[in-house]
């Protein structure tokens, strides 16, 4: 690997630009390939055009691996920007959740307009935003690599965030609250115009069922569910419509 390629990889990662490092196996020919408008930007050695489709697929699946292209074998090493986690509510559960999520590779932002909660003292080293949740969601624009979790229990804060999240391609949307709370929440969101299929995207009650009790355990169950959904684990699959219809509770 040439120092210039290594620098290019680091630059792409620092700027949050998706890129794939393609290495010919076993020759070692190497280039960093990144989407550039409708085409591709290639830094380093020349690569066959047949490599671009596999590169696109690798970026989409976020999976590294060897592909065959133009008679050669290439190792594609995906450097996507980090997954994101947007947590609404600088509450107790968010305190363990933020560092746990960071360790699992999530760029985490805690959103809470209530100044007493979102303090650097309570969240050392964590990115905080005091925007209202709807403004925050408009600013951060959750994409297919973003998870959104609401923890406030306060419809004034949770509902606008969930409304925006449901209109986004976020891969995970979770909302803290009991079944009863969740049923009432689904009803309110339905009144905002979200249909049953859309509402079924919300994981509520949030987290895997591990009988979590303490804030750290609940944070663990939430993060475990986010990972399970991300990795398509059987554990994360729910019967269709399990939480879709506002229950007659």
């Amino acid at each position: 690997m040439k120092g210039a390629i290594l620098a290019a990889v680091q630059a792409a990662r620092a700027s949050g630009r998706p890129a794939v490092l393609a290495t010919a196996i076993p020759e070692g020919t190497q280039a960093l390939i990144s989407p550039d408008g409708a085409g591709w930007a290639v830094q380093g050695d020349a690569v066959p055009a047949a490599l671009f489709d596999p590169v696109r697929a690798a970026l989409a699946s976020d999976e590294n691996g060897i592909v065959e292209a133009a008679g050669g074998r290439w190792f594609l090493h995906v450097h996507n920007p980090p997954l994101r986690l947007i947590v609404v509510g600088a509450v107790h559960i968010a305190q363990p959740l933020a560092p746990m999520a960071a360790m699992a590779g999530f760029a985490t932002t805690i959103v809470d307009p209530r100044g007493a909660f979102a303090t650097a003292e309570r969240f050392p080293g964590v990115t905080l935003s005091d925007l209202w949740p709807d403004e925050a969601m408009d600013a951060f624009r959750p994409d297919a690599r973003t998870a959104v979790v609401t923890l406030t229990h306060d419809p004034k804060l949770d509902d606008p965030a969930l409304d925006r999240a449901l209109k986004s391609p976020a891969f995970y949307i979770g909302a803290l609250g009991s079944r009863k709370t969740h049923a009432a929440r689904l009803k309110r969101l339905a009144e905002m115009g979200h249909g049953p299929e859309v509402l079924a995207r919300i994981r509520g009650p949030v987290g895997l069922s591990i009988e979590a009790v303490t804030p750290a355990e609940i944070a663990l169950s939430i993060l475990a569910e986010v990972v399970a959904v991300r990795r398509n684990a059987p554990l994360a699959q729910r019967p269709a419509g399990a939480s879709a219809a506002p229950a007659a509770a």
Partner: peptide, 18 residues
């Protein structure tokens, strides 16, 4: 965040990710 005054990263300069 757009509202940089209120954004904090107490343990050092803000980074794009952890």
């Amino acid at each position: 965040t757009p509202n940089t005054d209120k954004t904090s990263a107490a343990s050092g300069p803000a980074k794009p990710y952890s």
